[in-house]
Design a protein around this nucleic acid. Structure first.
Length: 828
DNA sequence: AGCACGCCGACT
DNA sequence: GTCGGCGTGCTC
């Protein structure tokens, strides 16, 4: 037998494959291909390999060679999972770029890129597919055994199943079972995406005229509450309007039980309809096919023309100017030419509403990719993008990883959104920037769209790196909001201020509440008061870990550090001199909320900042309350901007614009001027006039004037000029290096070491290590070093080399014990 | 990322 | 005397 095998295989080549493992490892590993799999291996296919003593992983073939590694004996790969590659060459190139650009390992990119069902590992947990009735007669022995076992024990790992079947390679079997919808990957993190529903109530159409009267008489006698509901319904539905359940409850004063009873009696019919959370661009015109305005036509022509020369065009279109319609036109043209389109949206904007509208328009060729979709759905989208049956993908940031065959256009909507940046696990990528690179790999085009572009994109457009187009008028006759600037100093003089509110803002708020409309108040500081100071000796409580003053939080009664989270009890007497004269300086959202409750006791007020949204779903819950009008006034920090798109939010108050216009910490206030512009441009839609009240001590401030004049060009120009002279200009690349250590002395030593190494080459372009501060989080001291760059690839690459070298040294010398956290690279 | 190997503190 | 803490190094 042996002889036969040798003879038989003599003419065959011995192949080796380099594979990417889904782990944070610096390099690819080489495995030997068993002869019988020689024909099966190809770049981009998945293989099963044993890594380490016992672990099995799904890896991706990144290269094939005939040369045996010299220094070690390669293990055999166990199996090839795919008939066709699941990852394209272009993607592999993209992964490589991303690992290099964001200083991480390809394995980490692979982890972010592939849905977990495509990377089964021995520890992956398998469950039965609950949505599927299993026909056991159609199962083979092994499948039967697995299904049986899963009936008894709902969750098994891949290695459990291997033990069960008494064989090592079970991945192919599981892969087939997965494709047959028999099993699923156990999902612990992803809740399944549920579209938001609203219940509409209507009267059973059998009740008309006489029947109606009869019904009403019966109800009035036997169930007066139900009669009230019917009456309220008739009132609300006048003119053929749809009536929602919450509206009906409010108008009739009945409980939902009463409505339930009516529905059970089939007098009324309940109907669940998917609703969107937010109203988006183009909402004012029901049909996306609507005729474009002259301005839109011109801008469209300009974008087309610029695409001849440039790969990226920035479309700056004010709110309600009809950007979406332009996207659709361009998407249509791209589809017609046979290429694929990726439409990127920030997570929050991916609602069933916009999905359905596009699906109605583009039919079955549109796929949606979303982190809240389960793995099945994600794999399905993956496959359909790969085989080309999806022409358009609408997705959040991770959709840049999909296996497009021929991507002609990427639309990045709301390009300024920070949620395009992945912060926590590596790769710490920004999908907008990654999209620009990705597009270049396909020789495609990118359209960045925003009502308030990011300063870096605007700068790129101004520099000629990107093309630029502008939509300046609202579409369909929607009014711009009225902006009123109120001088706080004057009102203080006239004594018309009530706490932090000017008479103008108070009046507008009262009127809005009378009209049953909503108000958003913006204050960019959380907590009650940012500084506490002793009136006698000027002592200020400071954080024991960080070099900042502590903020007083009334809700907890403690002093909080906003950098590291340290808390201590709020002192009643000065810890330094014992004086009882302690004073709060400045104010935050808590104080605004507090005083508003006193001034407007009837209003339903809610606060939205980091403190109130820390709990899971808290953000979403507040948004729902706002949407469903369970609150009148929302007070909050930057994050309230996400609620600005609700139709009934007509009054927006900026409590203190001055704090937005200073830059004590350039990163915290990176987009504050934009915030002002964003907030101002958005109040009021769907025929309702919006009003923005800007409270300030400095009404003639340049930025405020430019916001009033809606003069974005000047606003951005000034902003860019100003920041050119600033210590940390936004159009430099910044590399942020966090050094983490348990021992503060070592931390400083390491930080200095890195600083010195970098300074050898970059001199004063290295900011820090004194910037910004040391924080202590979970027993680790953390220090950040910043490095700024002109936008040239050479310096960036040089810096990366140094950082890599330092990383290596940290890992191999006595210096290490702490670590240099994966650097965060940002192309600001 | 896991996991084994290895060197110092508080326990039967 | 050992059990177990996590620091360090290795995985083709």
């Amino acid at each position: 037998m042996l002889e036969f095998a040798e003879t038989y295989n003599a003419g065959r080549k011995t192949l080796f494959v380099d594979v990417i493992l889904p782990l944070a490892i610096a390099k690819n590993y080489t495995y030997r291909v068993p002869f019988e799999l020689n024909d099966a291996v190809a770049i981009g296919k998945r293989v099963v390999v044993q890594f380490g003593k016992s672990k099995l992983y799904t890896a991706i073939i990144a290269g094939i060679s005939e040369h045996a590694p010299e220094k070690y004996e390669a293990k055999y790969l166990m199996d090839v999972l795919d008939e066709q590659p699941v990852v394209t060459d272009v993607q592999l190139g993209f992964w490589q770029w991303m690992a290099n650009y964001y200083l991480c390992n390809t394995g980490e990119v692979m982890n972010a890129a592939l849905p977990s069902a495509l990377k089964l590992a021995s520890e992956t947990k398998i469950v039965l597919n609950k949505d599927y009735e299993i026909d056991r007669s159609g199962l083979n022995d092994k499948e039967y055994l697995i299904v049986d076992a899963l009936d008894i024990q709902p969750e098994l790992t891949v290695s459990d199943i291997a033990k069960l079947l008494g064989q090592k390679t079970v991945m192919p079997i599981l892969k087939i079972m997965f494709e047959k919808n028999l099993i699923m990957i156990s999902e612990t993190v992803n809740e399944r995406y549920k579209p938001r529903k609203r219940t509409y109530i209507k009267l059973n159409p059998i009740y008309q005229h006489d029947q109606m009267r009869e019904l009403f008489e019966i109800l009035e006698k036997r169930a007066p509450k139900q009669a009230d509901v019917v009456l309220a319904y008739l009132n609300l539905s006048r003119g053929g309007k749809k009536v929602s359940k919450p509206d009906l409850i409010e108008a009739s004063g009945a409980s939902s039980a009463v409505i339930k009873a009516l529905v059970e009696k089939e007098i009324m019919i309940a109907e669940d309809v998917n609703v969107s959370r937010l109203f988006f661009e183009g909402d004012n015109d029901p049909e996306l096919t609507a005729v474009l305005s002259d301005e839109q036509e011109n801008v469209l022509a300009s974008i087309r023309e610029q695409f001849e020369q440039k790969d990226v065009v920035l479309l700056h279109g004010i709110t309600s100017s009809g950007k979406t319609q332009l996207y659709i036109k361009l998407i249509e043209e791209m589809i017609a030419s046979g290429r694929q389109v990726l439409y990127l949206l920030p997570e929050i904007a991916l609602t069933t509403h916009i999905i359905e509208r596009l699906r109605r328009y583009f039919g079955e060729s549109i796929g949606v990719y979303h982190s809240r979709f389960n793995d099945q759905e994600r794999v399905e989208v993956w496959q359909k993008v790969l085989d080309g049956s999806y022409k358009i993908v609408l997705g959040a940031r991770s959709s840049v990883f999909l296996p497009f065959a021929d991507l002609g256009l990427i639309v990045v909507d709301e390009e300024h959104e920070t949620s395009y940046k992945q912060f926590d696990p590596a790769p710490r990528y920004n999908a907008r920037d990654a999209a620009i690179y990705l597009s270049a790999l396909y020789q495609g085009k990118v359209l960045l769209g925003s009502a308030t572009p990011s300063i870096e994109s605007y700068y790129n457009a101004q520099n000629g790196k990107f093309g630029f187009a502008e939509l300046k008028t609202r579409y369909g006759g929607v009014e711009m909001p009225q902006i009123e600037v109120v001088n706080i100093a004057e009102e203080l003089k006239k004594k018309t201020m009530q706490s932090h509110f000017t008479s103008v803002l108070m009046d507008d708020m009262k009127q809005a509440i009378e009209r049953k409309e909503q108000i958003i108040l913006f204050q960019n500081r959380r907590g009650y008061a940012p500084v506490m100071m002793c009136k006698t000796c000027a002592f200020t409580p400071k954080c024991i870990n960080c070099d900042v003053s502590l903020t007083f939080h009334k809700s907890s009664g403690k002093m909080h550090c906003h950098y590291c989270g340290y808390k201590e009890d709020s002192p009643t007497t000065c810890p330094a001199c014992g004086s009882a004269h302690l004073e709060y300086k400045g104010f935050g959202t808590e104080k605004v909320e507090d005083e508003l409750t006193v001034l407007m006791p009837e209003a339903r007020i809610m606060r939205m900042d980091l403190d109130t949204t820390r709990a899971k779903n808290a953000f979403q819950n507040i948004m729902n309350d706002l949407e469903e009008k369970r609150l009148d006034i929302l007070v909050g920090t930057q994050m309230v901007a996400k609620g600005l798109d609700f139709a009934d939010v007509t009054v927006i108050g900026i409590i203190n614009a001055d704090s937005l216009l200073k830059y004590p910490d350039f990163r915290a206030n990176e987009r504050s001027f934009q915030m002002l512009a964003q907030v101002s441009g958005r109040a009021g839609r769907r025929g309702k006039q919006g009003k923005v009240v800007i409270q300030t001590y400095d009404p003639s401030h340049r930025v405020i004037q430019q916001v009033i004049d809606n003069d974005y060009a000047a606003l951005y120009k000034n902003e860019i000029d100003e920041r050119k002279s600033f210590k940390y200009p936004p159009f430099y690349r910044l590399i942020q290096l966090d050094i983490k250590h348990k021992d503060p002395d070592m931390l400083y030593q390491q930080a200095e070491f890195l600083g010195t190494e970098l300074r050898k080459h970059f001199g004063d372009r290295v900011i820090g290590p004194e910037y910004p501060l040391v924080s202590r989080i979970r027993n680790f001291y953390i220090k950040t070093i910043m490095l700024k760059f002109e936008r040239d690839a050479d310096s960036l690459n040089k810096a990366k080399d140094i950082i890599r070298a330092v990383l290596l040294q940290f890992q191999t010398t006595k210096l290490s014990k702490g670590s240099l956290v994966q650097p965060d690279v940002d192309p600001y």
